[in-house]
Nucleic acid binder design. Structure first.
Lengths: 240, 240
DNA sequence: CGGAAGATTGAGAGTTCTCAATGCCTGTGG
DNA sequence: CCACAGGCATTGAGAACTCTCAATCTTCCG
């Protein structure tokens, strides 16, 4: 039974048994981390490639004034940037949100694996998707109202989670406090709270005690102006 | 005399003469484009790698409501995503801003070139920098005030331009209307106008008739909370 | 039961947008 | 060389959105 990382890459590319085995082997011995632990900090020299096997993490940058902006969420199956080791230092930090199991793939192993075409292809696609996601976030921050922005984020997380088997029907575990959501969408936790209430009232989504429930997918998708094209999912929509 | 694309890659990696020659050759026959021409549209099947040799372009997405959000600026020397051809379709569009000369590198040639370690390394670094830039934009949109946001963008563009020889002292040609700036920073052109006035009044920058003048680099950097680390420039700051 | 973290509420202050009118500059045709 | 059209840039004023700053609830745990 493949782990979520392998499972995710398989969605992009048909991997050979040897390739899957190599990926499995490379991530077979994850390390446990508690919540709110920095895995790597801005300014650090990049190390091995990190792979989230269990638990959630986030990428963030802090501003001179002390503010924090989250620039990405990492859920089980997600890997941190291929090739970062080409850079002299990290331009952002990565921190766990929950308890987590993260595997670490040393550069040499990574290099060896990238010689296998399927793996290389899958990793490249995965990176392009991450980039598309960054662009989608910029669009949200720049041109969507706060309700739409939150709706968009929730839908994105739901879709990604569903793809790695983390959603059950229209429900999933979402371990993000309103303060964390606020740092991701560029708002105040107070305002996130009110917008979440609005969404709840509208009957589109519900997010309480760490469980997200997409009550009305169609309405939510319309409201958020959500077009999943940037996730480059090969399969058909989860909802259809 | 190397073109700006080669010049830019050389900033990241020491290329061998053969590598430089290959890059030169691959971009030796650019095509001219007029202003406001889509080079590729969201939904299109990705084609060859594009390289801007002269003129500016932008990446953008349009929303259901009709709004437009710019997610990146391309200036001479910049290339569009390596590997995009792995995706079934573009998740955003690219359009020229000014008259432009853009070269086109077919997949097979690109592949052949990537076999040369220096070129591969430079292209990967370049992609990581683009990604870092996307993250920096997210931070700006989420956590910076509108003046800071504009100041940050102007500084970024100035630094990047300076790196490819497009700045003269503290001055550069910036062919962006206030409406374009607005679509990039997620504001209204009316508000961009007012914030630009504020910057002008403060004596930090000036942007008039297409010329940007960084009057007080230190003050501007402080105001914008600008940390160039995400550009991963190997050389020392232009200002120091 | 006591504490701590996270979720909610209220009210007033600030920021940014909307809408519409006006001003400025440039290239073109007469 | 001048008038005119079109594209930008600028202004004003009121409306809409978000934030700030507390204060109050709830929930989760030891």
């Amino acid at each position: 039974m493949a782990n979520r990382f392998v499972e995710k890459l398989c969605r992009f590319v048909q991997l050979s048994p040897e390739e899957m085995a190599a990926l499995e082997e490379a991530t077979a011995r994850p390390r446990p981390f508690g919540p709110h632990r920095d895995l790597i900090r801005e300014g650090d020299r990049p190390g091995p490639v990190l792979v989230m096997l269990e638990g959630w993490a986030l990428r963030y940058k802090v501003l001179p004034g002390g503010g924090r902006q989250i620039v990405a969420f990492l859920m089980p199956g997600d890997a941190c940037d291929l090739h970062v080791n080409l850079l002299a230092e990290m331009d952002h930090s990565i921190q766990t949100i929950t308890n987590a199991q993260v595997a670490t793939i040393p550069g040499e192993i990574m290099e060896k694996m990238m010689a296998q075409p399927g793996i290389a292809r899958a990793m490249y696609i995965s990176q392009l998707v991450d980039e598309g996601t960054l662009r989608a976030w910029i669009v949200s921050m720049g041109r969507r109202s706060s309700v739409e922005r939150i709706a968009h984020l929730l839908l994105e997380l739901y879709r990604r989670a569903a793809d790695v088997g983390l959603a059950a029907g229209d429900t999933m575990a979402l371990p993000l406090s309103q303060a964390v959501l606020a740092d991701a969408v560029g708002m105040t936790s107070v305002h996130v709270n009110r917008m979440l209430q609005e969404l709840r009232r509208s009957g589109a989504v519900t997010l309480q005690r760490g469980v997200l429930n997409i009550c009305n997918p169609a309405a939510l998708t319309r409201l958020a102006g959500f077009d999943e094209n940037y996730l480059h999912r090969s399969r058909r929509s989860v909802f259809s």
